[in-house]
Amino acid sequence: MEIKEEVIKGGMEAIRPLIEEGLKKGRTAEDILAEMIEGMHEVGELFERKEYYVPETLLSAHTMMLGLEMLRPLLSVEKAAERGRVIVGAVESDIHDIGLNLVAMFLEAAGFEIYNLGRDVPTKVFLEKAEELDPDVVGVSAMMSTTALKVREVIEGFEKAGLRDGRFFVVGGAAFSEELADEIGADAYAQDAKKAVEVFQELMKRRK
């Protein structure tokens, strides 16, 4: 379980040699990924228990991503699409993307096919990407009270363009609460990256 331990402690330097060694010994990419996911799950719990904070969680997520980059060519693309295709981004004028990146990394670790549009994303870019990628779920974040209402604009943009039906909207970021998410017409609210994985998985079950 060395790989899991490195993910938990954010061993960015150690993860690649360990994965290389595992593959040489005949472990499958799926098996190694499962071990990393176990590590990230524990990181999520440490964050919930306030034993880990944003820097520690970021380090683990980046370690996981380094490992995932090595494994990606060996993993089946169909499997990720089966779990769900997702686009995420922070609304226009919102440049807070740490939480967003954590959500993207946690979702990717959980097997979703993820497209992270980053920060300061205008509604029209969300729409263009949705047309291009036909995502199952759209995750939109806003950190500030000044940008929270932009999320409503994104959802309304999808409605007007006829792209709302058949996909879910999940919102997150410090500006939100369950009530506000509901009020602006989102399908769900996720308060952190660990919760986001549960919420996205639940929505995909409903879709099936």
Binding site: P55, E56, H96, I98, N101
Partner: peptide, 11 residues
């Protein structure tokens, strides 16, 4: 950059 700053805190 905030994310780089938080990583620097640890590394």
């Amino acid at each position: 950059e905030p994310e780089d700053f938080y990583i620097a805190l640890k590394k």
